[in-house]
């Protein structure tokens, strides 16, 4: 995205993550079919796929940058923006929804001061919504990285967030 500058770029070669990326790209040089795998690997390194990363992937695989961007924006697993240390996933599946997930989501937005798909200013939390995660018996459910919080009441949200 124009305007969203990647902070790592200015550090150039000092950042070892760029070397990691180069290693990944070297293994897939000219292999246009490996685009999705490479984007996954790149996201594992950086936590997201910045514009600079997309350009490097495009160059190495011989794929137009428009296509890299197209794939990166098609799959919700890829993020074009830096994400927080903790990813909060609020399940909006049917069971969670009818048991008040929308209110839980609103409360988290209020507590953190961010909207869905945004990251808090301190880089700590990224708020996302998910479809059913298969824990309907615990509805409404949220996840924070690998932790699962079930039967979450609105008035408990603050307490849960405080753990991080």
């Amino acid at each position: 995205m124009p305007g969203s500058k990647c902070q790592c770029a200015s550090q150039g070669e000092l950042d070892p993550r760029w070397e990691q990326l180069e290693e990944i790209l070297a293994a897939y040089k000219g292999d246009a079919g490996a685009l999705i795998q490479v984007l996954h690997a790149a996201q594992d390194v950086f936590g997201y796929v910045s514009e600079e990363v997309q350009e490097k992937v495009a160059e190495a695989l011989g794929v137009p940058i428009s296509e890299v961007y197209g794939v990166a924006t098609f799959y919700s697993l890829f993020s074009l923006k830096p994400r927080g240390q903790y990813k909060i996933g609020v399940c909006l599946g049917t069971a969670c929804y009818v048991r008040g997930a929308a209110q839980v989501l609103a409360e988290i937005e209020k507590q953190l001061g961010v909207k869905v798909n945004d990251t808090t200013g301190d880089g700590k939390f990224t708020l996302e919504v998910t479809r059913c995660i298969g824990a309907c018996g615990l509805a409404p459910v949220i996840t924070i990285n690998e932790d699962v919080y079930g039967r979450l009441q609105v008035d408990k949200v603050k307490e849960v967030l405080a753990k991080y």
Partner: peptide
């Protein structure tokens, strides 16, 4: 073989965009 335009995003938000939304 210029490949400057591609489809990005999905569903209702799908759009033809030149080089990474420029």
């Amino acid at each position: 073989n210029v490949g400057v335009i591609s489809v990005s995003a999905r569903g209702f938000h799908s759009i033809i965009t030149p080089d990474a939304n420029r």
